[in-house]
Design a protein around this nucleic acid. Sequence first.
DNA 1: TAAAAACATGCACGTACATGCAAAAATAAC
DNA 2: GTTATTTTTGCATGTACGTGCATGTTTTTA
Lengths: 248, 248
Amino acid sequence: MLKEERQQIILKILNEEQKVIASDLSQRLEVSEDTIRRDLKELDNIGLIRRVHRGALRIGPPVVDFSTRQHMLNEVKTKLAAKALEYINEDMVILIDGGTTNLNLVNQLPLTLKATIITNSPPIAMALSNHEQIEVIMIGGTLFKESMVNLGIDTVDALNNMRADLYIMGIHKIDPSIGITVPSLSEASVKRKMVSISNEILGMVTSDKLGTFSNHIITPTNVLTYLITEDVNPDIKKLYDSQQVTVI
Amino acid sequence: MLKEERQQIILKILNEEQKVIASDLSQRLEVSEDTIRRDLKELDNIGLIRRVHRGALRIGPPVVDFSTRQHMLNEVKTKLAAKALEYINEDMVILIDGGTTNLNLVNQLPLTLKATIITNSPPIAMALSNHEQIEVIMIGGTLFKESMVNLGIDTVDALNNMRADLYIMGIHKIDPSIGITVPSLSEASVKRKMVSISNEILGMVTSDKLGTFSNHIITPTNVLTYLITEDVNPDIKKLYDSQQVTVI
DNA sequence: TAAAAACATGCACGTACATGCAAAAATAAC
DNA sequence: GTTATTTTTGCATGTACGTGCATGTTTTTA
């Protein structure tokens, strides 16, 4: 097992369980405690975890709410991510913006994947810290804290010089007749720019978002190449098929 | 159960119930009363709770996020940060790059501070997600995973259009005769640019970094306005004073 | 005021830790 | 494909940390 891979697993466990214990990790990952300690030390040094005696804790706001709903949603999103992985290939240039669904996907990317990932979302960038083979290009801008993405003129400008094979769009609301919508103007313009510089566009949505809309229209739904959802309703599928959108 | 974890639980309980009783906690957390007493003592020393006979009381209004603050207080880097806070004023434009020392500082910024913070470090940006009054501007670039900062031509370009009142520089190595040095070229050029667009420059270093150097020189030490270290050695101070650097 | 509870202190035990070093593995160079 | 070089790993050493218990002291309460 590679070091990076192991550290990635540690981060994943830490995300799920809020804490890790060194001796425990040693057993689960089948390496010596010394190695685990070294891993934890490294992750602590770059600020990804909080090292404490005997183990480490998650950094950032504590996820206190252990509600099952949250947990279930996470499982659904993991399924969506698994489907999306099919469309991600070696050496692609992938543009990906924010959202927990996208974050979930990134966390599932194989450590061996070689690719270029462009993102305007700090959490996405941080999640890729252990993917040696992935070149991460961050797009700057003004941080929009509600959804943790960089937005604004600078963001759009920076995107002007780039092209992507695949844009993995975080979708808030989507309706086949109205289009893909977001609640804020600046988010809309950045996403619109992202659409324009990408060859293919993939969107993941949990089914409860289908048929909902907000006030700023990014684009009609027919720009989507793939629409991924957890259970494919035949009616929905027909609706989008007529727009040349592949529903999976 | 980890010590820090237990203390967080205590804080959480205290947050919800206004007061805690030592013997009670001992049962709920399944540790000896001695341990609880020690926990309460520590939390009291840090100033997060008010210790009283039989238990402890909450200080001030309920808080949401104590997890970050808790572990830091009492550490060397925190002392540095506390000193640095003196030089951060309302409505400043602050440029800050990566490093755990800087991350520590950011975590200590008062939640009410109104300012603009420019950074090329995703962890720094994420740490500021709770600060409503702070406008965060992220500088994009290629993510340099070893130190979690964005670097490269795009980064330097983006900085061209900006000006900052104060640059809080993460310092790897510093030597009064050689200058401030880093191990990588791209990091050096970005930091050099940051220096050039900033009015004042503040550096925090733990004393073990004083008198060390690496292979890429950013700038001589005399560009620093303030140099903050944990215990100010008179010799060192004299050395830097002759370069118009205020050592604190 | 006496008994009980809570406390501070010091000690001992087990575990976790940092450090240096050598073997092993992975990567680079030839 | 083989060799050289770097990185990673495990082990040994000595040290530091966290916990519970024993002791004596202070505070609470009956």
